[in-house]
Design a protein around this nucleic acid. Structure first.
Length: 350
DNA sequence: AAATCGTGGCG
DNA sequence: TCGCCAAGATT
């Protein structure tokens, strides 16, 4: 039988939001005029699967350097990818650029204000389209992110595990989303999820919805949402190649598709189950297998990379990648796994 | 439509 | 310490 939620939820939540809304760089306070759609869109893209505290410094950097769609659309790919380095999920950066250029070229430099038109833009899925339509343009839209999923699953004490419960959660969220202030309602749900109705230890004593929450009544609210078992993360091995020429090291650009797509990187061999040795070396040289190892956890596997090193002279490697000054590697915009490797190799002799 | 795609924080 | 999780989108 389909669950049902009390009709008082939106009013209770909006009253709480009027007093407790977080102050965020991309947000206009409750009651104030709506904020800049560019900043709202940019924040939503950065916030995909990423927490507020992580996003803040990147948001400041990006908005200072590229303050509007025109500026971002005109930016160099390499500059944008380097500025994104460390934030993760690098496909977002490529899609963000494509989206900015689509807005500049096909929409007169302004975001479309309907959920359907937003949904058609690169990197804009169901969540982001609804969030931007509601927050930036005042449209009624049903906004469902991981916070909303958790809050709604608890309010209704849904026994269906995620991700199977998504359709039912969306339907329930629809029933409690107000026609007016849908953007504030969405942000209130997310603030509640981030600060009160947290995943591990919900603060039900502070929650404005505790009286309407079936999970709180059960005495074990932290046991929601129910989830399917996740399979264990496999382990992979690889070799990273540290090729030095004078004061520089060889960097390559990774393919657009796949892991760390489009990012600058150290050359690597294949990532596989067993140690690949020197397979995939960028140049034919006298490689030394160092004792140094980089361990890094990705979303769906962990990586153990052995660092191979070599010193060369002349024009070796010139047509493979770019020679980057070792002292200035921070400005290369390396994903974290390669930044770790570089930090190690800068102080390693072989 | 299940798999793929980063990183940092927290209990 | 380590598994879990987060303002998801894409194929």
């Amino acid at each position: 039988m389909p669950a049902k939620l009390p009709s008082t939820i939106a009013a209770l939540l909006l009253k709480w939001y009027d007093r407790h809304a977080r102050v965020l760089p991309w947000r206009s306070p409750p009651g104030a005029p709506r904020g800049d759609p560019y900043r709202i869109w940019l924040s939503e893209v950065m916030l995909q699967q990423t927490q507020v505290a992580t996003v803040k410094p990147y948001f400041e950097t990006f908005t200072r350097r590229w303050p509007d769609f025109a500026a971002l659309a005109a930016a160099e790919d390499a500059d944008v990818m380097a500025a994104w380095a460390g934030l993760g999920y690098y496909a977002r950066a490529r899609n963000m650029l494509a989206c900015a250029r689509a807005v500049a070229n096909d929409h007169g430099g302004r975001l479309p204000d309907s959920e359907a038109a937003l949904r058609a833009l690169p990197g804009v899925g169901d969540y982001t389209a609804a969030a931007v339509a509601a927050i930036a343009f005042g449209r009624r839209a049903v906004v469902v992110d991981a916070n909303v999923e958790r809050v709604v699953a608890r309010l209704a004490a849904l026994e269906t595990p995620l991700p199977r419960a998504k359709p039912e959660i969306r339907a329930l969220t629809d029933t409690i989303t107000p026609d007016d202030r849908a953007g504030d309602f969405a942000q209130a749900m997310m603030d509640l999820g981030a600060t009160i109705c947290t995943a591990r230890s919900p603060r039900c004593l502070l929650c404005p919805l505790s009286g309407a929450c079936a999970a709180e009544r059960s005495g074990e609210p932290e046991s929601w949402p129910r989830r399917e078992r996740k399979r264990a993360r496999p382990h992979r091995r690889a070799t990273f190649f540290w090729l030095r020429r004078g004061d520089s090291v060889l960097l390559v650009r990774r393919p657009e598709k796949g892991m760390l797509g489009g990012m600058r990187a150290l050359p690597t061999g294949p990532w596989q189950d067993d140690a690949p040795g020197l397979a995939g070396a960028p140049v034919d040289a006298e490689w030394v297998m160092t004792e140094r190892i980089v361990q890094h956890g990705f979303t769906h596997f962990t990586l153990e990379a052995v660092l191979a090193a070599s010193d060369v002279t002349g024009h070796i490697g010139d047509n493979v990648g770019e020679w980057w000054p070792i002292a200035d590697l921070e400005s290369a915009g390396l994903p974290t796994v390669f930044a770790k490797a570089a930090r190690i190799m800068k102080e390693t002799r072989w």
